[in-house]
């Protein structure tokens, strides 16, 4: 085991949705980062990475928030977010926002290179092989689009789940299919979004797993909301951070 705090600082980007909706996810992320031997820091002035503006086509708004984010986070050796989508914005889109501003582009690229999704950081950077959680039950993992296709988060959460003796991991069919959240898409085109998330819920239920774990709160609210609307009060929808940190109850 590494000595606590011996591996330097990691800045946690809480993400606006976690701050607003499920603070426990951020506390779980802090616990995991600390368990891996780092000092977890929460920069206080952080708000949002700007993705809603970016995806709405309001590039000016996105750029302003990107500048703010870069200034707040660039002094840290690592930046970690409990979200593939927010980490993906920083890693793959920030540099594009500053195509015509070489100085900011360089800063954005430097930041992008040290920004990670939580499980990606734990496995690929920290080399974590043990996690604090003692969850027991069957779990199926939903691959969120940005984490999977922008960052290559695929094996990392599964590797960590497989280290937990109580977890029985089951693959649902079409685990890489979008859940239909898509940020404002879910509100602008509810009918389409609803039909897509229905398929995801069917796949989750079809897997027979007690819980679905995933790395993005947006997708999580979409899936949980649909399951509950369908009258499914049993299937647990759990953020991977909470599951790995041992902050949620298991089966039976």
């Amino acid at each position: 085991m590494v000595a606590p705090g011996s591996r330097g600082e990691v800045a946690l980007f809480v993400t606006c949705l976690v701050d607003l909706m499920r603070p426990s996810i951020a506390f779980s992320a802090l616990k995991l980062i600390e368990a891996a031997g780092y000092v977890a820091v929460v920069p206080e002035a952080q708000t949002c990475c700007g993705q809603p503006g970016y995806n709405s086509g309001d590039t000016a708004a996105a750029r302003a928030l990107a500048r703010k984010f870069i200034a707040e986070f660039e002094r840290f050796p690592y930046i970690v977010a409990p979200s593939g989508s927010c980490a993906g914005t920083v890693r793959t889109h920030y540099p594009d926002l500053f195509a015509n501003e070489p100085e900011w582009r360089a800063r954005a690229e430097a930041l992008a290179a040290k920004t990670f999704e939580l499980t990606q950081f734990l496995v690929d950077v920290a080399g974590v092989t043990e996690v604090p959680g003692d969850f027991s039950g069957s779990v199926t993992y939903h691959d969120s689009c940005s984490g999977l296709r922008e960052l290559g988060v695929k094996q990392q959460p599964r590797t960590l789940l497989d280290r937990m003796p109580g977890v029985k991991r089951i693959e649902m069919r079409e685990c890489e299919e979008c859940c239909g959240f898509g940020g404002l898409f879910s509100v602008k085109y509810p009918d389409i979004s609803g039909a897509i998330v229905q398929r995801k819920c069917d796949a989750i239920r079809g897997s027979g797993a007690y819980a679905v774990a995933l790395g993005d709160l947006g997708c999580m609210m979409n899936i949980e909301g649909r399951l509950r609307r369908n009258g499914d009060e049993l299937t647990q929808v759990i953020h991977i951070a909470e599951l790995l940190a041992g902050d949620v109850g298991g089966q039976g």
Binding site: F27, V187, P190, M221, R226, R229
Partner: peptide
């Protein structure tokens, strides 16, 4: 309304992360 037309909206925790932290 688009959200709740198709699914429930999970209620937030009592306080923001910022407050709790």
């Amino acid at each position: 309304p688009g959200w709740t037309a198709q699914r429930d909206f999970p209620a937030p925790a009592a306080k923001t992360f910022r407050e709790l932290y």
